[in-house]
Simulated scan of single mutants.
Amino acid sequence: MRLNYEATGPADAPVVLLGASLGATQAMWAPQVDVLAKRYRVVAFDHRGHGKSDVPLGPYSIDDLGGDVVELLDTLEVDQASYVGISLGGAVGLWLAQNAAERFHRFALLCPPANPAENAQMWADRAAQVRAEGTQSITDATLGRWFLPEFTEVAPVRQMLLDTPDEGYAACCEALGSTNLLPGLADITAPVLLITTDGDTSIPPETVVPLAAQIPGAHLEIIENAAHLVTYSHPDVINPLLLTHLG
């Protein structure tokens, strides 16, 4: 599987991978890349089915999405990296922490869905809608969940959603609809930073907060007056937390 990625920062610096949200590309990390790249080799990638990555026919699984990231490390000839992921990227991070722990130093996981299979029918319905009507049919509702009304700088993110291949988006919905990462949380050994927000209606904070007690040693931050795509809307809050955790 060929994942599209952009690498920024010193070639000999520690590597940090950035995994995006469902319906977004590596470009959503623009508010973080320049800051992180002063200290790290930052590799922001597009999940399969997104951006300029390959778009195989679905359904996909979380094993597929996580395995793609391990394969990317192999392609980059990187033995170990740290990982930052939001939303779908956060779920992939939880999978990596459980299934490829030897390849990662630490994780920062923002608004991660740990058991999206609990709402399997919703994901199946959304996949069917996007296959039938395109991503434009879900864009306005998605932006309404991702940002509070007062945040208006959404045009680039809107375009990412509109440009996401319909099959890639739908197949990733199906991956989420078959994913339950709760059973393996207690086995995670890497340092984990969990971030949620008080206004997230996509992955509500009450589904993220309990994870901090289930992942050994996890550190939890709850961001106030923010919605789902908090990396994009609140980089002034998120970036210092990432720098502190990544070390």
Rank of each mutant, 00 (worst) to 15 (best):
R103I: 02
R41V: 06
L57C: 10
S82K: 10
V15R: 00
G93N: 04
G23N: 01
N115A: 09
V16P: 00
A27L: 13
D64M: 13
N115W: 12
G89R: 03
C111E: 09
G66T: 01
V70W: 07
Q32F: 08
R106D: 06
G66R: 00
F104V: 12
T25E: 14
A97S: 11
L36S: 03
L18S: 06
V70E: 10
D63Q: 11
M28F: 01
A91G: 13
L72Y: 07
T75M: 10
A117R: 05
L88E: 15
G67W: 03
V92K: 02
A30L: 14
T75G: 03
T25S: 14
L73C: 07
P59I: 03
A108S: 13
D34M: 06
A13Y: 15
Q80L: 15
F104P: 06
I86L: 12
L57P: 07
L76Y: 13
Q98I: 10
P113L: 05
H50I: 07
K38W: 12
A44G: 08
L65V: 06
V70K: 08
A11V: 12
F104N: 14
A20F: 06
A13L: 02
W29H: 01
G49A: 09
A13E: 11
Q121E: 15
V33P: 13
Q121P: 03
W95A: 01
R106N: 09
A108V: 15
L110M: 08
A37Q: 13
A108H: 07
A37H: 10
A117L: 08
G90N: 05
A91L: 00
L96I: 01
S53E: 10
V92Y: 07
V69S: 06
L94H: 11
K52L: 02
A24L: 13
D68S: 04
D63K: 13
D46H: 00
T25K: 04
L94E: 01
V15W: 00
G67I: 05
G58R: 04
K38C: 14
L36P: 00
G90A: 08
A81T: 10
V70I: 12
V42G: 01
T25Q: 04
H105G: 05
H47Q: 15
P113A: 00
A117D: 05
A20Y: 06
G67V: 04
F45H: 05
V70L: 09
H47P: 14
Q121F: 10
P31T: 07
V43A: 00
H105P: 12
Y40I: 12
V35H: 09
Q80R: 07
L109M: 02
D79A: 06
A101P: 12
